[in-house]
Simulated assay, not measured.
Amino acid sequence: MVIHRGLALLFCLLPLVAVQGCTSTGGADAGASGATTLQGRWAGKPATSFFSQYGQPYSEYVDRGGGTRYTWRKRYTETVAAPAAPDAAPAAAAAAAGPTYVCELDILTNEAGAIAKIGRVADPRLKSGETAGCRGTLGFDG
């Protein structure tokens, strides 16, 4: 009898453990998980929706699979508060240009124009003083 109760309890809890393993917060938007989150947000949605929200692609060409491959690129210069002069009022601090980030994505769509794959380009073309990253362009450091 004790064995049967233990097995019954195990079979009752097993589905709960399996479901718990499949859940995610969906809000992890920083660091290396950014591309995964980006993929989760946009997979299956029309590429035109992405471009209307974030801007048009840098380039596009027809993929061998029948879809379209896009390169999307955005540069973003962060604005930082410049230190105020010692005798200036606190509100007199001016804004200065901070670091410039380059976010470059590879977007592959299917024949219907839905995003099949989206991810960051590992080595985007950078100008002197620029850093690869999507900070400020997609709303997170992806």
Score class of each variant (00 low, 15 high):
R5C: 07
W42P: 01
K127V: 04
P99A: 15
F51H: 05
P124V: 00
R73C: 08
A84Q: 11
D29S: 12
A8E: 09
Y76M: 10
T109K: 01
A84F: 05
K45C: 01
K74G: 08
T36K: 10
F11V: 14
N110C: 01
G6T: 10
I115E: 00
G119V: 00
V62W: 01
F50M: 01
L10E: 05
T68H: 03
G119D: 01
G133S: 06
A30G: 12
A43T: 09
G98Y: 02
T25E: 09
W42R: 02
Y70Q: 02
T131V: 14
C22T: 12
P46Q: 05
L9G: 14
T100S: 13
I3D: 14
A43K: 13
A82H: 09
K74E: 10
T137Q: 11
A96K: 10
A43R: 12
T48K: 13
T71R: 14
G34K: 02
A47E: 03
T25F: 11
Q53E: 14
A92E: 09
W42N: 00
G133N: 04
G31E: 09
F140T: 01
Y101M: 01
G136Q: 06
H4Q: 13
Y54L: 07
R69K: 12
W72G: 07
K45S: 04
A81V: 14
I118W: 00
L108F: 02
L14M: 10
I107A: 00
A96F: 00
A28C: 13
R69E: 00
E78C: 05
A93Y: 02
A85Y: 04
R64P: 08
L126A: 07
K117R: 15
P83R: 10
E78D: 12
P46N: 06
A95M: 13
G66F: 04
T37E: 10
I3C: 07
V2M: 13
W72L: 03
G133K: 02
P83N: 12
A47V: 04
S24N: 09
G44L: 00
G26P: 09
F140D: 07
T36N: 10
S33K: 12
A95I: 01
D141F: 07
D123I: 06
T25I: 08
T71N: 08
S52A: 15
C12G: 11
L108W: 03
S24V: 08
G31F: 13
T23L: 15
E130M: 09
A132L: 04
A92M: 05
S128P: 07
T48F: 02
P90L: 08
T36V: 13
A94W: 03
T71C: 07
T25D: 12
L9N: 07
K127G: 11
L10T: 11
A122Y: 08
V80N: 08
A93W: 03
Y58C: 09
C22I: 09
A122H: 11
Q53M: 11
A85R: 12
T100D: 04
R69Y: 01
G65C: 04
V19R: 10
V102A: 12
L9P: 01
L16R: 04
G139E: 08
V102K: 08
L7Y: 07
S24D: 04
P46I: 03
Q39L: 10
